[in-house]
Design a protein around this nucleic acid. Structure first.
Lengths: 192, 192
DNA sequence: GAATAATCTTAAGGTGTCTTAAGAAAGGAA
DNA sequence: TTCCTTTCTTAAGACACCTTAAGATTATTC
């Protein structure tokens, strides 16, 4: 399926759009292709687009003071990725966003999106709903991160995102789950 | 200041409301007073209201399998509290919401809020913006919880929410930060 | 298909945080 | 004021998870 078809289908899972609204919306997005390992957003740049993943897989991560990477988020087809803090506050990003596979994203500039919010109420509703859900699932992750053991977190991740586990390196999963790759490796051994 | 005045001021920090819109909005909220320790939402109940805190202080928490409490969130004047998962999915709440002081909240039923979304686009915008910000700050908390030491988390909490630290028992702060009260106590001793 | 890079595993020793148990201090109710 | 409840502290021993370092696999590139 074409990237923009995917996006439209994705939007219509949550809100109602007329044909003419759909045209306006889709025309606001530009396609961007990324090679494996290519970086979509660099630390220090200001994020100025929202990005819908049409194909492929990305991660958002940051480097701490000791230059260690921490994976904040994965994204696959049908998800949105960004350094949202940078996007919302227009300050330099603290995160990188990087393709882990050949990837296609659809980007909309924040000015254009602001225009859509004013013109097409369904778009404002779409993002209101999107953020509500995102908040709830992030809260779930936070609670897990703080109160569950490494093994429990891994098992939950595996049952929830089996597809992602198979597509990304194990050390990135470890990082996403807040443990060392060595510990995850040992833990996995014990499971079998 | 009157509860509804506070709410209106709060809304107008983010969006524009005409006088007549303001009236419609405020009429949709009902005031509810809570005594210290009173419970606003019980585990097992379905959350059907969004709640704005006009005065006082609350916490949201859940009990794990071993009957230990985990504080998910604090809220003071000008914040919103809820078990959002229960509210959004209309399933039984996993969290309690409890007043930690004599508290006044303004509640709006989800059906009424849905009506406002349809009638008054500024309200949809308000919550879109609210959830964007909430998501970003929760993400910050998640990153901290996963990658920082107990001491760092506590110091950050203290500098960010000094007011809350002074209003709630220390063991609840420990729980919110994902550590035991004993450890927080020891940690604080070392700081001086 | 060889060479190089990326990823995963193993293991020993260390540290941060928890558990348990007890007592001390502070707060609220009568 | 006094009593009872809630909250906070102290300390010893335990354990989950980390660090470091090295070698073993598996992918990627030319």
């Amino acid at each position: 399926m074409e990237p923009k078809e995917k996006l439209l289908e994705h939007l219509r899972e949550s809100v109602v759009l007329t044909t003419s609204e759909a045209t306006v919306v889709l025309d606001s997005f530009k396609e961007r292709k990324l090679k494996k390992k290519e970086i979509l957003l660099f630390t220090g740049d200001v994020s100025s687009h929202m990005q819908f993943i049409s194909d492929g897989c990305l991660r958002a991560y940051y480097m701490d003071e000791e230059a260690k990477e921490h994976v904040v988020q994965f994204g696959v087809e049908g998800w949105w990725v960004n350094d949202l803090y940078s996007y919302l506050t227009q300050t330099p990003a603290k995160q990188f966003v990087q393709a882990l596979e050949p990837t296609i994203v659809l980007q909309i500039h924040r000015d254009a999106l602001q225009g859509l919010y004013d013109e097409i109420p369904a778009m404002e509703r779409f993002f209101r709903l999107k953020f509500e859900k995102a908040y709830v699932s992030l809260q779930d992750r936070t609670i897990n991160a703080m109160s569950k053991s490494a093994e429990e977190r891994y098992l939950e991740f595996r049952s929830k995102y089996r597809d992602i586990e198979q597509r990304v390196p194990q050390y990135m999963v470890a990082s996403y789950l807040g443990m060392t790759p060595e510990f995850l490796s040992a833990l996995r051994k014990n499971l079998k």
